[in-house]
Amino acid sequence: MDLKALKAQESKRKISKGYMWALFCAVFWGIWYLPGTVVWVLNPFDEMYSAIAETGGDGTALIITAVLITAFNALTVMLALMLWNGVLGKYGELGRTLKEFHPCSKWFFLASIFGGPMAILGSFIAMGFIGGAFAAVAALLYPVVGSVLAYYWYGEKISRRAAIGIGVIIVGGVTIFGGGLLTELSSGNVQWIGYLGGLMAAAGWGIEGAIAGKGLDISEPDVGLTLRFLGENIIWWIIIVPILAIVGYPMYSFALQAFEPFTMLVLIFAGITFGFCYVCWYKSFPLIGVGRGQGIGNLYGLFAIIFIFLFFGDVPQWTILVGGTLCVIGSFVMFTEETSALETLRGE
């Protein structure tokens, strides 16, 4: 075969593999909202919620319960990723990368602060208070946060096309948040904390992406992601959960009760789907580019709505459907700008 044919073949192989990984990411990410929503009504989390609500009020109860759920989510993601690294034979590389604190792992630990206590906790709060479809679609705003941050932080230019995409996503965001708020304002009962959770998810993931990129581009993504979740586990299990326990919330007694077969099964399901959605996401980037990877990955919002409909029979409000569609369209406009730049994504 000649050089030209081989080049075409190689790039075709790369692109089809890349789209496959990105699509897997979207499917796993969308599925994650199923265990994430179900876990709220399972023991011990429902009991924990009502026990704390009796003395501390609904809002506090929800946040404290969300902390414990997020902590377990981090733990099961970590288990899934350790298994994954074991299969790939990457424990050696894991140790080598962990030791490089200054150039590398500090970025993962910093990223985990925004990814964990902000984005994932916010998502669980939004799922608990408003619902899985809202939580999924609200987080679609994250690219706006990410690109604004990159603009101020590393002076990355926002092209006209990206700006149009951002505009479309923001209109989508206003529809998603505004639609729900209007209905609730008229009934006089606004779930402010749930909306705040949705905003936390979008802001947290946007910031996490901008920070984690600095460590990920010089490490292996499988390893980098594991370190990012190591950071999150430290935050939850060594810092926040013990502090809440000292303040007097029954964290440990309820945490121990989570080791019930069905609850564990749902938590492990959450860990596997979430862990692999991250892995697939990063695998797609070198093959089709960060832009296309994120664009396809954002289809998760629609997958989440479809899965929630199939499994729970919930039809979301029309504002969520319209807003979610706008966000996905916006992310395609924003991300798929340079068609010729498949080989090198960043400027030289």
Binding site: L3, T344, L345, E348
Partner: peptide, 14 residues
């Protein structure tokens, strides 16, 4: 390949 796609290496010849 990842380093190249991250813009740190450039593919100059095949």
């Amino acid at each position: 390949i990842e380093l190249a796609s991250g813009g740190m290496l450039k593919d100059v010849e095949q």
